[in-house]
Computed example of a mutant assay.
Amino acid sequence: MRNISDIIEKYIKEILDSNDKDNIRLKRSELAEKFQCVPSQINYVLKTRFSIERGYVVESKRGGGGYIQVVKVRPVTDADLIDEMIGLIGYKLTESMAESIIIHLLEEQVIREREARLMLTAMDHTVLDVDVPLRDILRANLLRAMLQSLTYSR
């Protein structure tokens, strides 16, 4: 059985896919009620599954008529998307952020599943077997180099 975060993510993505626009407005309380969970669970899904690394911008308006707006960002070309992802990679990169970037490239069909698996394996903490500060620096350099090679090979 899938966990509640997976179910909420799937639901939001289905709404986005069925919508002619690249954005939707949702009420956190209504989603929490629909899935019989606490509103913080909705916040967790939005923060972890709808981040900029995964190609989304989430805006929140608080107050009585408050809502959450989820916007799917669609770059013009694959090269634009790769450039955006390179821009997100700073001096250091966590494993979860690297995973988000790779999953986004896979979902946008910039890379194939096999390439994604190879990239994810190279980003894994068990493969980059060095202490944490150096590991995150190494991960950033590796992913940046991989993405730059994708830019030149297309």
Rank of each mutant, 00 (worst) to 15 (best):
E59C: 04
E59Q: 11
K61T: 08
K61S: 09
R62Q: 09
R62H: 10
R62N: 10
G63A: 08
G63W: 09
G64K: 08
G65V: 02
G65I: 04
G66C: 05
Y67P: 00
Y67T: 01
Y67W: 11
I68T: 11
I68L: 11
Q69K: 08
Q69N: 08
V70H: 11
K72Q: 13
K72L: 09
V73H: 06
V73A: 06
P75V: 01
T77I: 07
T77M: 05
T77G: 07
D78T: 09
A79G: 05
D80S: 10
L81D: 01
L81S: 05
L81E: 04
I82N: 03
I82C: 10
E84A: 11
E84I: 09
M85K: 15
I86K: 04
G87I: 10
G87A: 05
L88M: 10
I89K: 05
I89L: 03
I89P: 00
I89A: 06
G90Y: 02
Y91P: 00
L93H: 03
L93I: 08
T94R: 00
T94E: 02
T94A: 10
T94V: 01
E95K: 12
S96D: 13
S96M: 02
M97R: 10
A98G: 10
A98T: 03
E99W: 04
E99Y: 03
E99V: 11
E99M: 06
S100T: 00
S100F: 00
I101Y: 02
I102P: 02
I103Y: 10
I103N: 14
I103H: 14
H104V: 01
H104M: 04
L105S: 12
L106E: 08
E107G: 15
Q109P: 02
V110F: 10
I111F: 14
R112S: 14
R112N: 14
R112A: 12
E113D: 10
E113P: 05
R114M: 09
R114Q: 12
R114T: 15
R114V: 13
A116F: 06
R117L: 12
L118S: 13
L118D: 14
L118A: 11
L118C: 11
L120Y: 03
T121E: 12
T121P: 00
A122R: 15
A122C: 05
D124L: 03
D124W: 00
D124T: 01
D124I: 00
H125K: 06
H125W: 02
T126K: 11
T126I: 01
